[in-house]
Amino acid sequence: MTQGDDRIPLTVIGGFLGAGKTTLLNRVLSDNHGIRFAVLVNDFGDLPVDTSLVTDHDGETLTFANGCLCCTMGDNLMKTLSDLAMRTEPPEHILIEASGVADPRPILDLGTLHPRLRRDLSLVLVDAETIHDRAEDVRLKETVDRQIAAADVILINKCDVVDEATVAAVRAWLRKRVPDAHIVETMQAAIPLDLVFAGDGSPEPMSRPVAANDHDHVDHGTQFRSVTVVPENPMTRLAIEQWMSVLPPSVLRVKGYIAAENDPGSVFLVQRVGNRLDLSVCPAQGKTPGVVFIGSADLPDADWIGRRCVA
């Protein structure tokens, strides 16, 4: 029996040039959230970081005041990942910025193959303003298709620069292409940290959004919701799988612990992103049962979700 899951979650952030990847990553590196992220980018030059936040710079790696690292991928992503995992203080979560034309799936697969890593989330940003043109562009349409198909969660970003009808059209268009897609709308790539960060399963109250900047007047509460459900009884693996399988696409991430039936000393660590469920068993000691559901504005309430839990 494993001691929970001490592998480092690997998230890939995809999307074309200008979709908001850099904005999102810049916030991870600047905000004071207390989580040791490592962010891998193609090019430091693209990242307009506040240099006053950089505490150390040794060629390939920048260290930030909040404890995060940022490195360039170099020509050997695998080696870069191995080196990160082998650090004396390894990162708690690794985010990789995929190039605009990269398929996120093979990159995420490295998380499946590497013994120290765990495949987490593929998050693809689409630019509400330009996605339609790109999907029509003969140079780019297959790349758009591949990206969208590879996404566990799709963020329709830049919803503040287009009208509501456009956002609705983009959403409908995505829904038609990927019927079970997990889609959420954002502005300035502002998403809750809990959606990005896999964490150790502890159901915490929803964190504040990955910080808004000064001219950001978006009410994130309308874009994202989270609810916590504590199952009344211990559950079997099968029962958890059944419960997770009935959740609507508005559920973007699930994480938490559930007491294991017939095994009082153990709990299930539940980690689900998009439709991908990862269940592992770990000792119950010190683990508070409870499951947090993070989703878009139309996330069902705790009661609805709880009623579908049949232990």
Partner: peptide, 19 residues
Amino acid sequence: EPGYYNGAPNGLWYIEPDE
């Protein structure tokens, strides 16, 4: 157009064309 003769999907960019 007309793409691959055997109908295989179009290939891969190694650099984003706009880059």
